[in-house]
Amino acid sequence: MKFKETDIINIVIAGTAGQGVITLKRLIEFASQKAGVERNFGAENHGLAQREGAITSHTRYQKQTFKDERKNLNSPLICYGDANLYICLEPAEALRRGIYASDKTSFVLNERDIPGVMITANLEQYPSLEQIKNILYNYSDKVYSINATELCLKHFHSNQQVNIFMLGFAIPTRNIPFIEIEHYEEVIKEWFRDPETNIRALHLGINEGRNILVNKN
């Protein structure tokens, strides 16, 4: 997808508490600043970070604003159906905020599920991955899924890099325009505890993303 500099970029990031949804949002926002983005406005939810809840963030930016304020980015929440990218760190969370998706949305999906307590207690059913993907495919064919958790466990012996890996995985879909890989790397070096591992995770994701795009096309 080709974006104009005046377009408002809308990215939903959804996952569960502790998966690094807010960290990922911050990374994109701070990288967009390095990319010279003119306006940035996005909401995140605080307050229940440790407690297994569903976490969503709205990342929104506009490289160049219009003179006419009515056409500019002014709300930190994405309008229904307006997301151009939906990063799902957990499969069921791909559906929970589905109201923000439409035929213009690309989905990148981590296939590893994190069932909530009601699933463990056998009091609710978790939809199958196939069922979830089918729902997403009804939006568009731009659904890219991978077991990011498994890959991160294999490469880093930890699932802490899943969020950064998924960002890398999303980059080749060209839905986070105007931000270069170097911008992410700079932010990671400045703000992250273990920059080396996170930059490796970013590149691992980018490579996997490129492979999937090649295979898909």
């Binding site: 809840g53 229904y80 929970r96 109201i99 069932p115 909530g116 609710e124 069922q131």
Partner: peptide, 22 residues
């Protein structure tokens, strides 16, 4: 687009497993 987004979401939202804080 808004209408379609609402309607399609409503068509499947009942299968989303609950995930409340715990």
């Amino acid at each position: 687009r808004i209408n379609k987004a609402i309607n399609y979401f409503n068509s499947y939202k009942d299968i989303i497993p609950s995930r409340f804080p715990t």
